[in-house]
Design a protein around this nucleic acid. Structure first.
Lengths: 248, 248
DNA sequence: TATAGTCTTTCACATATGTTTTATTTGGAT
DNA sequence: ATCCAAATAAAACATATGTGAAAGACTATA
């Protein structure tokens, strides 16, 4: 248990600073937050539905997802998690986890005890506000996903999540030009979109044919961002990013 | 502008008390929260996507819904709001509303300024926590809806929202035996389920035929709760109700 | 009590997406 | 290099759900 919390090394601090300026005290407190770092291989659960965790996890690197499973065993991914996310921050207030979180690629995860988070929040109300705000943005993303899954079809639904991923990845510096690493499998996209693997394949083929995306290996390239945005009806307002470099 | 905040009259105070015991100070502060009460007719927007509200609304009576609209004009309801809900509490931290809120029936709505809420939170950290917790439960419900819309079909999807409505309504005292008022239209259910009005009608017919529900006028009766729960794969954990009378 | 406007119900038909199965390709491990 | 497991691709067929239209049934209100 140590504390590798350097400002530009820790994506959470970076994100908070994009919303408001941290005082030295606040930054210091965040940097000295005790965190247990662990490397977790792909396709492993970090936490499981039903758990009563005593700590939350900060995703330092890699891709993960928040998901739930039907009684019949069908999986639905309700959000993709990228570096800087604290996907189970909610467990600070809600004792029983109502979803699982699993890795998609190998991940570096930092575990922070609820005790430490409580302590931090008690001493720094603005940090409480910042954490609360993060969970509100998560909720906003869930709302958009209900819309996406409920009312958009095929190409449009797919285009929308791709846009969201690009914008969020860009916000944490993981997009160069219009390309990024994207180790998400067609089966995983299916679980995120409420589709079948077969249908995801069909949709991707069509999008490739139309020159909308280049997606192969673990690399996504978007030759025509405006076109993709339009097809996915993508408006980044719901991500509530302060720095709107992303919207471009 | 006055303050009709009696403990058992105000469904928000009632709800908070189900989670933890309020001190006299806290209760007093909540009761004296200035609130502007307004009666709004059915099918009106209370707030709209894009608004930058300076106050949040507490639903005192009636049914409302949180919804978003596709660029092509398709509507998706992302949650039903019932008495005691503060469906746009998020706007305390997120400046631009990313969804609209509309009435389903005639509603009594109490508007509370963000200023007053901030003041309350600053003075009573436990109330901050309680509000934060409410928004986390909202998020949990959105997650369940993504699963429901993405991975359940027909009868199962419908059964699930009916179960959720019953349990939440029971928690605020709006269910007697296994029946409740439910002024929700088939078109509105369609928008909540990602279906078509026609398909909702088909599904309801089937459920009626199988004796699962009695739904007519604005009244829902559930003769066999266990059966409905099972068909909807309904597990109320995600609602994070403390008093689990609901789970029965 | 009449009228208009919603809601609900049905029908016939269209289609997006699911199912099953069988290649083909890809990317690590050995 | 070789091999294995997973991921992608493709085809043929099945079905849940959408579309469009029209006929009842309510409900509020004039």
């Amino acid at each position: 248990m140590h504390s590798p919390f350097h400002p530009d090394y820790n994506p959470m601090i970076r994100r908070m600073q994009s919303v408001f300026t941290l005082t030295d005290d606040e930054r210091q407190a965040l940097q000295s937050l005790p965190m247990q770092v662990q490397v977790i291989k792909a396709d492993q659960d970090i936490v499981r539905e039903g758990d009563r965790p005593s700590r939350s996890c900060l995703l330092l690197s890699g891709f993960a997802c928040t998901y739930k499973v039907t009684a019949q065993g069908k999986r639905q991914i309700v959000s993709f998690n990228i570096p800087g996310d604290i996907p189970d921050l909610q467990s600070l207030h809600l004792k029983v986890l109502d979803n699982s979180i699993g890795t998609i690629s190998t991940c570096r995860v930092g575990f922070i005890t609820h005790e430490a988070l409580w302590d931090l929040c008690t001493r720094y109300p603005r940090i409480t506000a910042a954490f609360w705000r993060e969970t509100l943005i998560d909720a906003s993303i869930f709302r958009e996903w209900v819309l996406n899954v409920g009312r958009r079809e095929g190409v449009s639904r797919m285009a929308h999540v791709l846009c969201e991923l690009m914008v969020r990845l860009r916000a944490v510096g993981l997009v160069e030009n219009h390309a990024c690493d994207l180790p998400i499998t067609q089966g995983e996209f299916a679980d995120a979109l409420g589709f079948t693997t077969v249908h995801v394949n069909r949709v991707l083929q069509q999008m490739r044919t139309e020159g909308l995306i280049e997606l192969s290996g673990e690399r996504l390239n978007v030759p025509d961002w405006e076109k993709l945005k339009q097809l996915g009806e993508f408006d980044p307002t719901y991500l509530h990013l302060e720095t709107d470099q992303a919207a471009a």
